[in-house]
Design a binder for these strands. Structure first.
Lengths: 193, 193, 193, 193
DNA sequence: ACATAACCGAGACGGTACGTCAGGTCTTATC
DNA sequence: GATAAGACCTGACGTACCGTCTCGGTTATGT
């Protein structure tokens, strides 16, 4: 039961932003090894200031990655399921095929695979992206363009699965053509035959 | 506890096997941090013996992972595209949903994301799995069950994309039901309309 | 647990005392590592309040040490040089052989060796103790019990040298017998042969 | 029960020497703050190599200090107690009054006061110096120049006490005149009156 | 049969990064 | 305007691994 709400110096917002900006910069480079010391130095900040506010390196990197990624949010409304889906996927594939964004996703996943705190953050982020996609599906359902029995989870997994698979394994590039073909396949698989 | 004899002159096959076995054991545990020293100690081997034959830690881990994974290879031939695909996916999902295999895939990806040598190995492995799947598609094409214009790459990416996405992000489990639904979707998307 | 009131404007004497008391407490324990944060917390004081009034950690510790030590000041006057000296040394040795006082001297020296401000304080303190001892010598000189040509500095150094040497190196304990033997030696070395 | 006496690479003697040399160099400078990293860097050595062989920074510094100090060993034999003692003390005072040696002693003591391992090393070193001095006293006893009842510990403490006191507190310098006066006092205090 | 040479285990080496700790400074709300 | 709280930058701490190197020793081969 704190007698006062708060005493002492408050969190320095400038430091927080400098840290995330530095982290994002380093993420955009494809340096697979980013150290906490490097982030701190680039942000002009002590390491302890990072550890005071984030549980681990991965958590900082992911927060930085996500903050960047939030900006690039297509919310298409073309009137048709096929149109919305194609627009969403083409835009998303295009964004992600840019090397810095690709590097950002790859490093984010690498961190998430070692660090539970980072994994939570990544899961929260991907969940938000899934919801955007599922809005499109739900709208289509309301218009009768998609079967009601469609497995929504699988629908999202097929879309994002292709995305992540190509980003991580790199067997094929994320082309607009692939986005369109994928959109068509997904529409067909939801079709109220 | 050096029980293996030195061989001198030629590569000691027993050491190689002990290393891969130790690596596989450690991979199956979900210890996110596996060190070369730990592998060497578990194998009763000097670190240099590892570095003599593999370029990096990731390469050892992936070779071990792949060797394990090769054993679990379904090559179904039920006579129909839908049957083959469903059998393949159900079996694959089942295998991968076992926690040790899941850990193995996750750690393999983590290594591949940091270590180019490991990335190459993982790419080679996934390529071999893709070919198995594409055999099924090609057989279907010969029987006229699949459209000739089907994008083979996208077909494989959709299947393995869902698999890896669920293994890495864990939003949903790899259930047989999901495998069956995915198989149905894929058959439909290859359908000679 | 801030029980003391803020005073505003003028220096808070209660805070000063709480700081020195906390420092003295920590000094008496043989914890070789005393942090400013620990002193501040024990005193219920902000770190800045310490740094506002003292130049460094060592300076606080030494001021606390000296304040404690001032209390234990024998000023013997037995009438004879030998008597005064023996009384002084026996009392001093006894005081210093108590573990908390020993710890206090050892920590004080440790701080003085790293921190010029602390060194100054320690020098000032030891100087005051030397003057007490030299009073005894001077009185003896006036009575004709000590040679006028005696090296006063060396006289003091021999006495306090043994004290500090035993406190710091610990080859031998500070026994009353040693104090008496030392007193006898010193008297002899000042003897108007 | 080791089947072999030793396997693996042996300790690198060059590294050991480089570390002690670097430590001695840094000790001679009056930098009160010497870090393990600095020693390692100056020696061209990894920090771990220091921690592998010494329990603490203080232990390294003291070993370096002692190794240097061992070189400067007066073993006088003038035939008389007074001559031997004066020669020993004058030489010792002269050595120690050199600023680098003074710095070395001060830093050694500072380390010993914080670090038990360093304290042990310093105690062992001072013990060896005491024995040298006591040899002189014992030889004098054999010749009948010193009383048999002399307190040998106190004798040594008086000599080294003055030395350390002046090095650590610095009230007075370590002059040859002081050494001679001290020698005279000590001879008198052992006198078989 | 004996020298040679590649291999082996062990483990020390120079490094890089880790996550923690403390010193001394600065900032904020409160008295 | 001094205070308690506490965030800040700095820099050292001691540890964990990396990938390389150097030992003494083991065996298959080549003479």
């Amino acid at each position: 039961m704190p007698r006062r709400a708060h005493t002492g110096r408050r969190r320095n917002e400038a430091a927080r932003e400098a840290i995330l900006a530095a982290a994002a910069d380093l993420l955009a480079r494809d340096d697979t090894a980013i150290s906490v010391g490097a982030i701190a130095a680039a942000a002009g900040v002590g390491k302890q200031t990072i550890y005071r506010w984030w549980p681990s390196k991965g958590a900082v990197l992911l927060e930085a990655a996500i903050e960047r990624a939030q900006e690039l949010t297509p919310r298409p409304d073309t009137g048709s399921f096929a149109g919305d889906l194609e627009t969403f996927l083409v835009a998303t594939f295009e964004t992600v095929s840019a090397p810095p964004v690709r590097a950002l996703l790859r490093t984010s996943m690498a961190e998430a695979l070692r660090d539970p705190a980072a994994a939570d953050a990544l899961r929260a982020f991907t969940l938000s992206r899934r919801e955007m996609l599922l809005e499109i599906l739900d709208r289509a359902g309301e218009r009768g363009e998609a079967d009601e029995g469609t497995d929504r989870h699988l629908f999202a997994d097929q879309a994002f699965g292709v995305l992540w698979y190509r980003v991580l394994l790199g067997h094929d590039p994320l082309t607009p053509a692939a986005a369109r073909a994928l959109a068509a396949n997904l529409v067909r698989s939801c079709g109220s035959s």
